[in-house]
Amino acid sequence: MVNMKPIEVDETLTELVVSWRRHLHAHPELSYQEEETASFVEERLREMGLRPTRVAKTGVVALVEGAREGKTVALRADMDALPIVEETGLPFSSKRPGVMHACGHDAHTAILLGAAKLLSSNREVIRGCVKLIFQPAEEAAPRGGAPSMIEAGVLDEPRVEAILGLHVWPDLPLGEIGIKEGAMSAASDPFRIEVLGKSAHASTPHYGVDAIAICGPLLSALHSIVSRQVSPTDQAVVTVGTIQGGQRYNVLADRVEMRGTARTYDPAVRDRVERAIRSAVEGICSSMGGTGVLEYNRGYPPTVNDPFVTEVMRSLIRDLFGEEALFEVRQPALGGEDFAFYAERVKGAFMWLGCRPKEVPVEEFPTLHNGRFNPDERCLPIGVKLLANGALRLLEVLG
């Protein structure tokens, strides 16, 4: 039966989830250093009568077994923080200088803990099992923490049929939930270019090969890839974020390093952009007497929502929160998200959870990865209700 009564988040659970989020916010940990976070998660899960298992060093997985036989779906949250100085001034600000939950992973972890408590208190309505995946190192691009969790077998024993995840989203106001089938976020591919020339005195440049001079046309060529080699109907971004080189003001640089990132949605476009970057590096450097070396790393793939799971969640959002809560995403994000690795293996849906107070204009609200980012905590019970009931709905329709 699909039209089952939803399980509700009461005030007591809401207060718990808020307190968990604040504790996590005050004690952030960087990727693969989430020891205290993992221990906190394990303690809360044990209090619910669950048996958590540590995997992939700082990851945690647990299983909520329902009263009825059925399949298994997974809920995933990321746990790591960022090397950012917090500027919120909150009473529960980071106690670790230079480390902050500036991407909302404290909220994600607290939401999944809340969903775990709600589900474990309602086992009689669960048809099958719900696997809880608390993942480290989402910020550790280009690999991220998801591949290690998958290699550790979190999608197996019992085999996961579908997976859900969410991200607090400051572009959306409180109460709205964004979703679409297809790409929700981009492939994220970092690259490094080494431009090699030949040193000479600045007064005799004809005796050398100026690596800095090579970087000028190379940078222009890289920035023209999207406008001239990618169809206007496709989308891509190529950005060079750092350029470092040179030893002294009167010496030609013999080496310059450039680092950047390419973002794409379509696999064919991803291939085309990589080829174009490689062609520009090799061609321009050699034409100016130097050598170009490209290290191109395939990072996170695009996060692609399964049409079936997406439609199930669309219907659920309407049922739980009303038509006005459903935000149909038109423009996917160009940021990377390692939930993509799970969605490559099993049917999945990733959602955006509105976390900006409605009265605050989007341009005035601190965005993700900002030292002042602080999601409206009223989004937490919405996320709990969404994930817990999403798992129940999927188990029912999967049979």
Score class of each variant (00 low, 15 high):
V397Y: 02
A262K: 07
D338F: 00
E139S: 11
M4S: 14
T242Q: 14
V55S: 01
G260H: 01
I111K: 03
A110M: 12
R378I: 06
R356A: 02
I126H: 04
A202V: 11
L252W: 03
F40K: 08
G59D: 10
A146D: 09
V18R: 11
L172F: 03
S315N: 15
P136K: 04
D306G: 08
T14L: 07
G241T: 11
E87T: 11
I214R: 01
G49D: 11
K347D: 06
P232T: 10
A77K: 11
C379P: 04
R393A: 13
V362W: 07
L50N: 09
G49P: 11
G399Q: 12
L398K: 02
P173A: 00
A325I: 05
G145F: 10
D210I: 08
R22E: 04
N250G: 04
N297D: 14
K57H: 15
I193H: 07
G178L: 09
V281R: 02
P136Q: 08
R76I: 08
V154G: 08
A81Y: 00
R44K: 15
F350D: 01
L118C: 05
F341E: 09
P366F: 03
R159Y: 06
E359S: 14
E8D: 12
L222A: 02
K5H: 04
R248G: 15
I212D: 12
G383W: 03
R318I: 15
E181I: 09
S93R: 12
E323G: 09
M79K: 06
H206A: 12
F339R: 01
Q33M: 12
A202E: 07
T14W: 12
E34W: 10
K131Q: 02
E161V: 09
L219T: 07
A391C: 05
H101Y: 05
G292D: 08
R127Y: 00
I284L: 12
R192A: 14
L316W: 04
T37L: 04
V168W: 03
K347C: 02
A221I: 09
V346T: 00
S286H: 12
G336H: 09
Y300F: 14
V240H: 03
V18S: 06
F373G: 03
S203D: 14
S224N: 13
V125K: 08
V18P: 05
I284G: 01
R275D: 15
R318D: 12
V160C: 01
I163V: 15
R192Q: 15
M79H: 10
L174T: 03
T291E: 15
L113D: 10
Y296H: 09
E124Q: 11
P190Y: 05
A253R: 04
Y32C: 06
A38M: 03
E11W: 12
W169Y: 10
R259H: 08
E151Q: 14
G70E: 10
G283V: 09
E86T: 11
P136R: 01
A152P: 10
A77F: 06
G390A: 04
R248F: 12
A152K: 09
V73P: 01
G114F: 03
A333L: 12
A280W: 02
L326V: 10
V384K: 02
Q33C: 13
P301I: 07
F327E: 13
P170H: 02
G246N: 10
R127G: 03
V329Q: 00
V397N: 09
K347F: 00
S227H: 01
L30M: 10
A388Y: 06
